[in-house]
Each structure stands twice: as structure tokens, then as C-alpha cells.
Design a protein around this nucleic acid. Structure first.
Length: 292
DNA sequence: GTTGAGCGTT
């Protein structure tokens, strides 16, 4: 599809602005946000049904309905807590609620045969339900399996079933459990008022632009930082601390990689996380009063 | 080129 411009407006009755598409016909959310700061998506009125329809958004990329943007006017979506008069807590509690009801987690698989590959894992676990991520942990130098890995399912019922039994994989009995990091996270108390999140388990091919485009869907992103040289983590700062705290504890999938979101800790700090310190120490962790 | 309880390059 040749490069073209699509018509975007704040509101159906406002004058539209022309916004460029990419070579493949998609439109980047970041392009929209450049003109409409805080935008998190697009919608349009379907000429046939007269209903508003949402535009497909995958990892920061907006896809044309029916592969053709046409001459329709697309209307900007904003995060609910920006536009509507919602209670202060709603954005955060909505995510937390969703998580507590039926949110899947990465599961650790212990005892894998050395030869088992990610494809083997995917083939095996697909018999239980839809798999959205598998990993075999390997020695970075030799590439040899460390004998354990991770799996993530779409459906919570699938996860429950998989946890409830042992698994014969390539001739060995393996256990699937909630990883320790998860168990601790469930004990996390009140979130701190930080607008910055720590994005752990990043791979080297994930760029700052991709992080920005991905996290835009949750709220306005004001900063992305990736340490160099590569250290497998990044920081993302939102305009709204509610968005940041709502994401803490989540495992999100970016470019097929499961990254882990936690609160960005203060720089000078002992190696133990606040939640661990709070659990094992008598003295509660003191959150810093001013922290960006 | 080995191994067999564990926990994902903060």
C-alpha cells in the first residue's frame, strides 16, 4: 500500500487533521500521539451500522479496518482517566480487579530434559490450551539448556489444570508451578506513588521506540530509558502514577518476550526488594517521599 | 562432550 494520510480528529464534529501512515499501510500510535498528546487509540463510525468501531491496535501499531483507511474521519481515544470523569482510583483498581479474577502468570517448568526445545514445549503444552509464550533457559555461552523454562497460557483454566498435575516431557517428569517471584508479588501491599516502572527481562532487540509504542496503550508515556551497555531491563515513565502502579506485578508480552513490570526502586538501595524486606524484616521499608 | 535441585542477565 502506498503512503497516504488518514483523517483524524478529536471529535466527530471537529476539523480533521491529516496524519501520515507507514509504508505498509499501518499507522503508528506514536504518530497520532505526536499530534494528540495522550492518545491511546482510534475509533470511527461504521457507515453501515452507524455504530462506533475501535481500530485494531497491536503493540503500538494501528491497523486499517478492511485493510483500507478510506476517507473516514477517525476519532482519537484517550485513556479513560484523562477524558471521562472517573473516580481517582478507577484506572488502577480496574487493572487490579482484572488481575485478581482471571489473570494468567508465567509458570516455571522444572526438570526439563537437556534436549527439550521451545518448540517441544509449545507442542506439548498446546494440548492443554492456547500457549502465548514458552522459554527454555540456556547458558548464554554454551547454549545448553539449564533444564528449566517458562510457559504462559491465554486461559486461566488452562493454567490451573497445568499446575495441578505432573508432566511427562521427552521422557522426564516435570513440575509446573507459579514462580517464586509471583508468590512474593501477591503479597505486595500498597503501591508507591511513582510514575516510573521497572521493565525486567528485556531482550536486546527491544528498542526505546518499541517500548514507548507498546506502553502508550496504557497511558501517556513521558520517558523511556534503556541502560547501555545492555542490562536486560528498562525504565518507562508515565504522565500518571496511577497507570504506573496499576501495571506493577504484571507480566506483559512485547515482541514475544515476557517482560516483568515492577516498581522502579530508588538507585542506592540494598539488593533486596521493598516487598521482601517488608516480609522478613521487623522494620518496614520507607518509601522515598520524592521520587520521579 | 559432564549434571538433576532449583527460579527468569535489576
Amino acid at each position: 500500500m502506498a503512503e497516504l494520510y488518514i483523517r483524524v480528529a478529536e471529535d466527530e464534529n471537529e476539523e480533521p487533521m491529516e496524519i501520515p501512515s507507514e509504508d505498509d499501510g499501518t499507522v503508528l500510535l506514536s504518530t497520532v500521539a505526536a499530534q494528540f498528546p495522550g492518545a491511546c487509540g482510534l475509533r470511527y463510525r461504521n457507515p453501515v451500522s452507524q455504530c462506533m468501531r475501535g481500530v485494531r491496535l497491536v503493540e503500538g501499531i494501528l491497523h486499517a479496518p478492511e485493510n483500507d483507511w478510506g476517507s473516514l474521519v477517525y476519532v482519537v481515544n484517550y485513556p479513560k482517566d484523562n477524558k471521562r470523569k472517573m473516580d481517582e482510583m478507577d484506572a488502577a483498581s480496574a487493572v487490579k480487579m482484572k488481575r485478581s479474577i482471571e489473570k494468567t502468570s508465567d509458570l516455571i517448568i522444572l526438570g526439563l530434559p537437556w534436549k527439550t526445545s521451545e518448540q517441544d514445549l509449545k507442542d506439548y503444552f498446546a494440548t492443554f490450551g492456547e500457549v502465548i509464550m514458552v522459554q527454555v533457559k540456556r547458558d548464554v555461552k554454551t547454549g545448553n539448556s539449564k533444564g528449566f523454562g517458562f510457559v504462559r497460557f491465554t486461559e486461566y483454566e488452562t493454567q490451573s489444570k497445568v499446575i495441578s498435575q505432573r508432566h511427562m516431557i521427552d521422557g522426564r517428569w516435570c513440575d509446573c508451578k507459579l514462580p517464586n517471584s509471583k508468590v512474593f508479588n501477591q503479597c505486595l501491599g500498597s503501591p508507591m506513588r511513582s510514575r516510573k516502572i521497572f521493565v525486567g527481562r528485556c531482550t536486546e532487540d527491544i528498542t526505546t521506540d518499541e517500548l514507548r509504542q507498546f506502553f502508550m496503550q496504557y497511558g501517556e508515556v513521558t520517558d523511556v530509558f534503556i541502560p547501555k551497555p545492555f542490562r536486560a531491563f528498562a525504565f518507562v515513565t508515565f504522565a500518571d502514577d496511577q497507570v504506573a502502579s496499576a501495571l506493577c506485578g504484571e507480566d506483559l508480552i512485547i515482541k514475544g518476550v515476557s517482560v516483568h513490570i515492577s516498581n522502579a526502586e530508588p538507585k542506592h538501595n540494598n539488593s533486596r526488594s521493598p516487598s521482601l524486606a517488608a516480609m522478613f524484616d521487623q522494620t518496614p521499608y520507607q518509601y522515598p517521599s520524592s521520587h520521579v
